[in-house]
Design a protein around this nucleic acid. Sequence first.
RNA 1: CGGGGAGUAGCGCAGCCUGGUAGCGCACCUGCUUUGGGAGCAGGGAGUCGCAGGUUCAAAUCCUGUCUCCCCGACCA
Length: 573
Amino acid sequence: MRRSKYLLNTLKETPKEAVVISHQLMLRTCMIKQLASGIYTYMPFAVRSIRKIERIIRQELDRVGCIELLMPSVQPADLWNESGRWKNYGKELLRMKDRKENEFCYGPTHEEVVTDVVRRELRSYKELPLNLYQIQTKFRDEVRPRFGLMRGREFIMKDAYSFDVDEETCDASYWLMYEAYKRIFSRCGLNFRPVEADSGLIGGDYTHEFHVLANSGEDEILSCNQCDYAANVERCEVRQPAAFSGPELDKPRRVATPDAKTIEEVSNLLGVQPSQCVKALLYKTENEPVLAFIRGDRTLNETALRNALGVPELELLNEGDAREVGLVPGFVGPINAPDGLSLWVDPEVLAIEASVVGANAPDAHFTHVHPSHFANYQVTSLRQAFAGDPCPRCDEGVLASWRGIEVGQVFKLKTKYSESMNASYLDEQGHSKPMVMGCYGIGVTRTMAAAIEQNHDDAGIIWPVQIAPFHVTLLSLDVGSDEVDGAAETVYQALTDRGVEVLYDDTKGRPGFKFKDADLLGIPIQLVFGKRSLNQGLVDLKMRGTGEKRSVALAECVDETIAALRQQGWEHH
RNA sequence: CGGGGAGUAGCGCAGCCUGGUAGCGCACCUGCUUUGGGAGCAGGGAGUCGCAGGUUCAAAUCCUGUCUCCCCGACCA
């Protein structure tokens, strides 16, 4: 591609709305143009990278037997009523009406449509397993779109859906996809981790997210430094201590703690460690208030509490709400708690020999509280794991914390949709059974953004060669000189003939400008053609990633370039 | 949805307080000089000042309403 005929207007200055690096660089390199909040045009330079990511996805999914199809973006409300999601999905679902006032939505995901396809087409166990996928634009009306392509409303997604006869073969389909995902993200040149994630209410035993490691990631993930355990912090398991089993040495003592409402104030006033205090948090489910207790120096994991209660929603209550259920804000504890509250206690709390708890009375706490003084409670792991915790799986490991960008998820749906939408097959005995489903997503455009988040420096993008919009950029410093033009044209043609994608900067710019621009664009290899070197029969080859530069003979430069590309993992297709 | 900020040329911004011919830098076009790390000079094109209403002889500027965008938080199959 000749730069003079391409659409690629780079910016020297960073538009002010961009705060994360991928967003800034994508704007500066003319990759995206915003049309509305969370809605972008993918410009030519970006589309080239998107197509490469898609190509890798297609190859790896086809390899494990997935079959590509393409479903409609606009979906009738009827289908969503069958699954129950027309009511439940909420405002993220973009709804609309056609001219006949029939209701439709723009697809945020395609469980309903794919289940409908399969229930019409499949009858027999002999046709299973089946895994259908598509790559398509999705729309989710996010509450707060942000960070460019990292959290857009419209985005390109690969979604796949597996159909199996039972849970066992569904597991096999799941792990096949898990391995395919590892190959996909590896081939994209990304540093990533598959992590255990929360499966919510329908998910069942496990689900994994694939995270690209980057400081700007919105998720915290924890991984073991010894074994391969890794989990989203909201799902991360905690090694729990045994309850303190020694005898009660003393009765709880009621002490005056005027105005000491926070853990910090109480521990300072009484001269005890925060880890000896008990923190109480009041939540509300749809039906009932719930009181949770964790150690004073810990953070509560709301996902853990939600799962323990088996509820989809949980709301943290404020002081006013606390008074309504008979609590004294700041002095809440497990002893003499008002009736009608369900009490949940983290195991760590019960490992404290003598703890400090609120007295459920104004300006008072109990000290010397022994585990046996807790009454009418249930024990469940409630605290959030953090870096430095021992690994929950192996004996030697310690957890380390990372920021991650979620680029993919594999998920077991089981029979949620096949039952509600009646997608069934006949087994060998002629019995009708619901298919067991899995779903598997990859955010294509988010993957591209994550790649930039992970691969850049002060000068600009550093594309992994596998997903780079071009493999090589050829800079002509003396456009108009017959010698330079001739050499550049010849090499441009030769590289192109050998399957190398070249961005040929044949514009009449000054050298400094071209160098800066090439660094900004981040194409893996720069080939520099200028009189100064060419007079000695040389061209200059620079590796964008390492900054390494060397001069090579004009006659050798095509082979040298291809060798350097191969070294970075380039494969000619 | 709560809190904060911003809409003036493609991008970055000034002008608004104190109403009176809409400006600067980058980018773009023309010419000359320059040419190995974002050149210099000269000339030029480009803006319904987010939108609507009001006050006024006169509104980018004052008043009211409204829309959009960004950031923090809540939320995120």
